[in-house]
Nucleic acid binder design. Structure first.
Lengths: 128, 128
DNA sequence: GACATCTATCAATATGTAGTTATATAGTAA
DNA sequence: TTACTATATAACTACATATTGATAGATGTC
């Protein structure tokens, strides 16, 4: 049984938290791993503008068709994108709009960390 | 110059979105990669309960001290945790509370996908 | 039918990284 | 000083995966 039925169970309190179980940690880690490749983020950036076929993604992202197709398969198996056949083509689209919020939060965190680091370099708070 | 000053630039519209530049994609991917290991999520789950020394994290997460220390170094280099020396120990703490929201969103997405998959298995909509 | 296009997958290589063991470094206590 | 504890790092193995090229399968067109 490769997938648990209660993969993302979290702490009972209403606040945001990390997965409470080890199995939940593994499921969440798997999804983060799907988002941990620059090429896949570029693919998602293209799909954020609307559903697209594989060749359209290739034209936008670059690289070989085989590589893009495999990355799309990874995103599909993680339920990050969905696909449907349209004639001879396969149209991919983002399945979970919450992904965009996630990437925004991460981007903001990077900006904040960069500001902190810049302030340290400028002498406001020397590194311990 | 290993780090850009504007790593997470996003689209001008107020809505959440993916990084606009390729460099931004790589920075965001690096941070997602730091979150893509179950052991590191377990470490963060421990740190979410409060700052802790390396040996305390080892006692909670398991594994060898060397491995936990290396994972903490990965989280530190991604600005996900911060550390300070206290006598002979090193105390680690979560640097960016937004991480908890991110993990919650991912966990909810997994739950939603599991519900959809369960509904498909129960015959409501056979897989294409 | 033959042919072209689009997509998925296979095989092979190269790179990255998690884990272990052993060791080095730093701080504390005697 | 020596001894002990806590943490970081180096060397190594093993495994996962990103990438490419070749190819197979499916669909549409002639």
């Amino acid at each position: 049984m490769p997938r648990a039925l209660d993969p993302g169970r979290r702490a009972p309190c209403g606040a945001a938290s990390l997965p409470a179980t080890d199995a939940g940690c593994e499921e969440v880690a798997t999804r983060f791993r799907a988002l941990s490749e620059p090429t896949r983020l570029k693919i998602l950036r293209r799909l954020a503008r609307g559903e697209a076929s594989v060749s359209e993604v290739v034209a936008d992202v670059g690289g070989t068709q085989a590589n893009v197709s495999k990355h799309l398969a990874v995103l599909l198996s993680s339920d990050i994108v969905r696909r449907k056949r349209q004639g001879g083509r396969t149209l991919y689209a983002i399945a979970d709009p919450a992904l965009l919020s996630i990437c925004s939060i991460v981007g903001e965190g990077i900006e904040r960390a960069a500001r902190v680091r810049a302030a340290e370099i400028l002498g406001m708070a020397p590194r311990p």
